[in-house]
Amino acid sequence: MSKVIVTADLCKQCGYCERHCPKEAISFSSDFNANGFKYAVVDDDKCIACGMCYTTCPDGVFEITQ
């Protein structure tokens, strides 16, 4: 199970998670979600489940599972 569950359809591509991720584990997809935004994608190998993305996300995209 991945450390972070990303609900892609909630993402609005503001980029706050990418800016504040200490491990640079977050990038944006090449395809689009239901609202027409490129959504956040988490690299599980780099992710340390620190929760910075959850803290800064305005739209509840992220759920930290461990």
């Binding site: 359809d9 909630l10 609005k12 591509q13 503001c14 980029g15 706050y16 935004f37 996300c57 305005p58 739209d59 509840g60």
Partner: peptide, 11 residues
């Protein structure tokens, strides 16, 4: 999902 603009602090 509350329809604030992308990057709005309200969320």
């Amino acid at each position: 999902n509350i329809p604030f603009c992308p990057g709005c602090g309200h969320g």
